[in-house]
């Protein structure tokens, strides 16, 4: 019951926040100095006849998209639609037949899969590495892990993506195992969504930095927890050092990791555009970046809506995770 109340309260505040974000985006897209048609003109150039045609189209759009309505009405109308998961048509393809919803439905899973796979890699590799470094504190293994992870943290995903492609496509293929190395792992489907193998490379590129971050946080967090009195109790039971860490020190040490990783997952979803481009994934990232360049207002607003909603839902999930990890933390 208390959990239900908490969820309703948080979901309510999420709806209000998203409404604010959408309203701000609406307002900002209005004051931006150039619109969809000036962008078209800039891109393709236009003679006098062309300019007239664009102006006509602009007038047409004012009606189709109700651009002369007051802002609150536009926002309200948009919001009512969005509640039904209907983002309306884009400027590029006006008319109710082509809806942004279809684009989102096709591309959102791609982005989410890559981001979650990257986060999965970060947790699956980062946590054991961090534990291992803590276990062998101040040994050469620890120093190596710490410095390698520092490098991992500062190399941006798009650089890593290029390096990974280079390594597997050129380097590995040039050696014996190269002959059997499947190209599809390099994720180059021309259309839509390929097999799970297409996820591996982008997830690696995206997950490397968080892996390093997780390892470092787990290491320092575990070492801090090891100073606690209840760890001494665990030692007094006769448990070995590894068992003490895994059974007792790890769980309380996860709190700071969750704190850091929640926002990191949102960054990954937002930042997946860089990796999507390199691996030619049909994700949301490039759709949204193009939308901004073309001043395709409905698409831009949809992107803000989706990213804002994702970030807020992740934050909600993080808060719930806290109380799962530590029973002393109550949901309220």
């Amino acid at each position: 019951m208390r959990v239900l109340k908490f969820l309703l309260k948080r979901l309510g505040s999420i709806v209000v926040s998203i409404a604010c974000v959408v309203a701000i985006t609406f307002a900002m897209m209005r004051v931006v100095p150039s619109d969809y048609f000036t962008q078209l003109e800039l891109r393709y150039g236009a003679n006098t006849a062309g300019k007239q045609m664009l102006d006509l189209q602009r007038q047409e759009y004012r009606e189709i998209f109700h651009l002369d309505d007051p802002l609150w009405k536009q926002v309200g109308r948009y919001f009512v639609r969005v509640m039904k998961w209907d983002f309306g048509p884009s400027y590029k393809e006006p008319g109710e037949a082509h809806k942004i919803t279809e684009l989102v439905n096709a591309k959102l899973p791609v982005t989410l899969t890559v981001a979650c796979a990257g986060m999965g890699i970060a947790l699956v590799f980062g946590i054991p590495l961090g534990i291992f470094a803590a276990l062998r504190r101040n040994s050469w293994i620890d120093y190596t892990l710490t410095s390698v992870s520092m490098v991992g943290q500062v190399v941006p995903p798009y650089v890593l993506a290029v390096l990974l492609t280079l390594f597997f496509a050129v380097f590995v293929r040039n050696f014996q195992i190269g002959d059997s190395f499947p190209l599809e792992w390099l994720a180059l489907p021309s259309e839509g969504w390929g097999s799970w193998k297409n996820v591996v490379m982008p997830a690696l590129a995206l997950g490397a930095a968080p892996t390093a971050a997780v390892a470092r946080y787990i290491r320092s967090s575990v070492l801090e927890t090891l100073e606690q009195d209840f760890v001494r109790t665990a030692v007094s039971k006769g448990l070995g050092r590894l068992q003490v860490i895994v059974r007792h020190a790890l769980r309380p040490s996860l709190i700071p990791v969750v704190t850091v990783m929640g926002p990191q997952l949102s960054y990954m979803i937002v930042g997946s555009v860089l990796v999507e481009d390199i691996f030619r994934l049909q994700g949301l990232g490039s759709l949204f970046v193009n939308a901004v360049n073309e001043r395709d207002v409905p698409l831009v607003i949809t992107s803000t809506f989706i990213l804002a909603a994702t970030v807020m839902l992740i934050n909600l999930a993080v808060d719930i995770l806290y109380s799962v990890i530590d029973p002393r933390i109550e949901l309220k």
Binding site: Q228, F230, R232, T233, H248, P252, P327
Partner: peptide, 14 residues
């Protein structure tokens, strides 16, 4: 072993 401060000596998340 029995330690001094029972609250901090018990694992809070177990």
């Amino acid at each position: 072993f029995v330690f001094q401060n029972p609250l901090s000596s018990l694992n809070p998340v177990m």
